[in-house]
C-alpha cells in the first residue's frame, strides 16, 4: 500500500507550486507517512474544487435562467443536490480516511522508541536504554518507522514534525505515541503546535535522521 501512495505522491510533485516547499511544509513530505497525508490532501483538494465549481455554476445558472435549470423540480434539487451528490462522496472519503487512519496507527512495536518530553518551552529527548544526547536535537534512523512517546511536564503541548508525519498532543498525565518515518538521512524541523504560553513561538526543534549505522554509532557514544 505504502509504495503505491509514494508513487502517487511523486506523481503529484510537479503539481506542487514552488511556494509549497519549506522546512515545515506538509506539502513537501520527506517520509512515507507524511506523503500519504499529502496525497489525501491533494485528492480532497481536487474533489473540493470540482464540488465548489458545481455549486457556483448552478448558482450562476439560476440567475441566467438557463432553460434546463428552471425545469429542475424541487424533488430533484433536494434529492439530487442534497443526497445523491454528497452521500457517495462522503461515504467513500470517510471510509478511505478511516482505513488510512488504521494503517497509520502506531501498531505493534516499532524497533525504536524515543521519548519526547515537553516542558515550557523546550523539548527533551531520551533514547532507548536511557541514552541522552545533550544537543536539543531529535536523532532518529532514516528508512524505518520510529515511535515517539510524547509526554508533558506542565501544560499541554503538541509534537509536530510536518514533513515526517502528523502531530500528537503532549498532555500532562497522559502518554501518547506517534510514529514517524524519514525516507532519507537529513535535517528536518519540528515545533510545538498547541499554544502553551509566552514561549510558544520559540518551541521549535531540530530532527536529524541518520543512516542506520550512523545512528547506532551515535547511540554507542551517547551518555547514560
Amino acid at each position: 500500500m505504502a509504495p503505491r501512495f509514494k508513487t502517487l505522491a511523486l506523481g503529484a510533485t510537479p503539481l506542487l507550486l514552488a511556494g509549497c516547499s519549506g522546512e515545515l511544509s506538509t506539502l513537501d513530505p520527506a517520509g512515507p507517512r507524511a506523503a500519504n497525508l499529502a496525497v489525501l490532501w491533494w485528492v480532497m483538494l481536487a474533489g473540493s474544487v470540482l464540488l465548489f465549481a458545481i455549486v457556483m455554476v448552478l448558482f450562476a445558472l439560476a440567475y441566467l435562467r438557463t432553460a434546463w435549470v428552471t425545469r429542475i423540480t424541487p424533488a430533484q434539487w433536494i434529492i439530487g443536490g442534497g443526497l445523491v451528490l454528497p452521500i457517495p462522496v462522503l461515504v467513500l472519503l470517510t471510509g478511505t480516511a478511516l482505513v488510512l487512519g488504521e494503517q497509520l496507527l502506531p501498531r505493534g512495536n516499532a524497533p525504536i522508541r524515543i521519548e519526547a518530553h515537553a516542558e515550557r518551552w523546550l523539548w527533551t529527548f531520551t533514547y532507548p536504554d536511557g541514552h541522552a544526547v545533550p544537543d536539543q536535537t531529535l536523532h532518529m534512523p532514516a528508512g524505518q518507522p520510529v515511535d515517539i512517546v510524547v509526554t508533558a511536564e506542565d501544560v499541554i503541548h503538541a509534537f509536530w514534525v510536518p514533513r515526517l508525519g502528523g502531530k500528537i498532543d503532549a498532555i500532562p498525565g497522559h502518554t501518547n505515541v506517534v510514529r514517524l518515518e524519514a525516507d532519507k538521512p537529513g535535517v528536518y524541523w519540528g515545533q510545538c503546535a498547541e499554544y502553551c504560553g509566552e514561549g510558544h513561538d520559540g518551541m521549535q526543534f531540530r530532527v536529524e535522521a541518520h543512516t542506520t549505522e550512523e545512528f547506532a554509532a551515535l547511540m554507542q557514544g551517547a551518555s547514560h
Binding site: 452521500i87 461515504v91 470517510t94 478511516l98 488504521e102 496507527l105 502506531p106 501498531r107
Partner: peptide, 18 residues
C-alpha cells in the same frame, strides 16, 4: 437511520483502544 448505520459502522473494524 442513515446516520446510525454510517456513524456506528466503524464498531465492526476500527481499533478499539489504540
Amino acid at each position: 437511520l442513515l446516520a446510525s448505520v454510517l456513524v456506528f459502522l466503524p464498531v465492526t473494524f476500527a481499533s478499539l483502544c489504540a
